[in-house]
Design a protein around this nucleic acid. Sequence first.
DNA 1: TTGCAGGGGTCAA
DNA 2: TTGACCCCTGCA
Length: 298
Amino acid sequence: MFSRMKYFNYDVEEKDTYVTVKGVTTFDLKHIFECGQAFRWQNKDNGRYLLIAMNRIIELEKKGQDLIIYNSNLEDFNDIWARYFDLETDYDNLKKTLANEPIMSKAVEFGKGIRILKQDFWEMLVSFIISANNRIPMIMKTIENMCRTFGKPIYYNQKEYYAFPTVEELANADVEQIRACSAGYRSEYISETAQNINKNGLDPDFFAKLKTDQAVKEMKKLKGVGDKVASCALLFSGIKKDVFPIDVWIERIMRCLYFEEKEVKNKEIKQFANEHFGELCGIAQQYLFYYARENKIG
DNA sequence: TTGCAGGGGTCAA
DNA sequence: TTGACCCCTGCA
């Protein structure tokens, strides 16, 4: 079995159980998965990354400018992964636009293979509610526990993995069961938000059509969702590119690099980001975050 | 071995 | 604006 297609500038080929996308630039698996936007991946010792997303398991490998997606086919590439990896966006061009001053130049160079993923909105919302007052390894553990407890099994290579729980699955879950996944005081937030959404729905298009500030404001009506969580959920599901999530790392690096170590309010940081990075402030935030965290700046 | 400090967003007062 | 919330890691 061998078939091929064209997607934008990419030649895409399917063979056996994998898909090869040719001519992929600005795509580094470490940068993409380890920059804090995704939680359900494993760095395999053979250089591949295993990803659990969209009710599927895939393995990814980058060989030169070839991106290889194992355990997949052209249909899934078309329906899911092309959008998920935001392959229609020209990151080479976008980086040139952003890197017009020395600080951002450095951050972009450091994380040059980053792409912002367009992940499932519901999954992002719950994941970032869990992220509040929490560290990345702990967030990943809690999410895995929740998937194992409430999600449907997916089988791959004789191993059992679990899909991210649906709205209904979490809405019907007992708060104490959620707490048993080490979600702590966030358990009530997750339960209440799941029940709210199960009743009223969660439509990405509704938020996409709103002005960004308004979208954040609407998101904050959900329990456990403040500025940071709302911004992250909108950014990492590809709904808004012009949000600027501010956590302690971003606050530190912004103060250190742009405010000469002076005390600065989040409101000022946000305003600065909007003025300097404009429409691209979401991706700018991601370069800065990765740069700050990996280099322990601040 | 135990115990304590540190880390980190949102809510409610 | 401030304290409480939870749980893991690192270190004494």
